[in-house]
C-alpha cells in the first residue's frame, strides 16, 4: 500500500483542563514518511495532543490543517487512531471484530492479511473476550491496519505486549512509513534502532518556564 502525500500541521495549540493549562503553544508538522515519537512524563498531555492530532478533540486555541495529495481533508478521511480503549467487543470473535472495521473501510479482503501480520492467525473463531490483554492489543493493531489510512496516531501501542508483539509493531510501523504513511506515536518503550525517528519531548508548561 502506498499513499499520496499526507500532511498534518498543528500550530500554536493549547489545551487546558479546568483552570490548568496542560499544553501551551504546541506546534508540530508531520508529512509522509515521518515518524514522530512523543515523549514526556505521565500527565504531560501526550494523550490530549494525540486526540487533537486525530481530530477527536479540539484545542482551545491553535490551528490544525490536514492535506492529502494536496487537497485539504478532514480528520476522518486520513486518520486511524489506536488509543487506550481498543473498541474490541468481547462477545464477538476475533474475525467478526476485525471484519466489521474492514467492511466499514470497504476492504473486507484485507482481514486475513491483517491477522497474519499481527500473529493472530488460527484464532479467528475465538471470542475476543477470551484473549489476553496483549492479544487484544494485537487485534487493535490489526484494526488500525485494516483501515488503510495514511496517518496513524498511536497511543502507547506497546502496552501489555510481549517481545514478539514489539517486533510486530516495529514491522507495521516500518512498512507504513515505507509506503508513504505518517505516524505520530507516544510510547515509553525503547524506540527501535532505526534512523528517521523524530523525537518530540513534552514538558509541563510550569516546568518550561523555569
Amino acid at each position: 500500500m502506498t499513499f499520496a502525500d499526507v500532511r498534518l500541521n498543528i500550530s500554536g495549540a493549547s489545551v487546558s483542563r479546568g483552570d490548568r493549562i496542560i499544553v501551551d503553544d504546541f506546534s508540530l508538522s508531520v508529512k509522509s514518511k515521518d515518524l514522530v515519537w512523543l515523549r514526556g512524563t505521565n500527565g504531560v498531555g501526550k494523550t490530549s495532543l494525540l486526540r487533537i492530532a486525530a481530530g477527536l478533540a479540539r484545542p482551545d486555541t491553535g490551528e490544525i490543517t490536514r492535506t492529502f495529495g494536496g487537497a485539504v481533508v478532514t480528520a476522518p478521511q486520513i486518520t486511524a487512531f489506536q488509543g487506550h480503549r481498543d473498541a474490541v467487543k468481547p462477545s464477538l470473535s476475533v474475525y467478526e471484530n476485525l471484519v466489521f472495521w474492514a467492511r466499514l473501510s470497504g476492504r473486507s479482503e484485507t482481514v486475513d492479511r491483517a491477522l497474519l501480520k499481527v500473529g493472530l492467525t488460527g484464532r479467528e473463531g475465538q471470542k475476543a473476550g477470551t484473549l489476553s490483554a496483549g492479544q487484544i492489543r494485537r487485534l487493535a493493531l490489526a484494526q488500525l491496519w485494516v483501515s488503510q489510512k495514511p496517518l496513524w496516531i498511536m497511543d502507547e501501542p506497546a502496552a501489555a505486549i510481549d517481545l514478539s508483539g514489539q517486533a510486530v509493531i516495529d514491522d507495521l510501523i516500518a512498512e507504513h512509513i515505507a509506503g508513504g504513511g505518517a505516524i505520530i506515536l507516544a510510547s515509553h518503550a525503547a524506540p527501535p534502532q532505526r534512523a528517521g525517528i523524530r523525537f518530540v519531548t513534552l514538558h509541563a508548561p510550569e516546568e518550561a518556564r523555569l
Binding site: 486525530a54 481530530g55 477527536l56 480528520a75 476522518p76 478521511q77 486518520t79 486511524a80 487512531f81 488509543g83 487506550h84 480503549r85 481498543d86 473498541a87 474490541v88 467487543k89 472495521w101 466499514l104 473501510s105 484494526q143 483501515s147 489510512k149
Partner: peptide
C-alpha cells in the same frame, strides 16, 4: 462510548 467504538466509528468516516 466507553470501549472506544464511538471514536473509531467517527474516524471510519461514517
Amino acid at each position: 462510548a466507553r470501549d472506544g467504538t464511538l471514536e473509531q466509528l467517527y474516524l471510519s468516516a461514517m
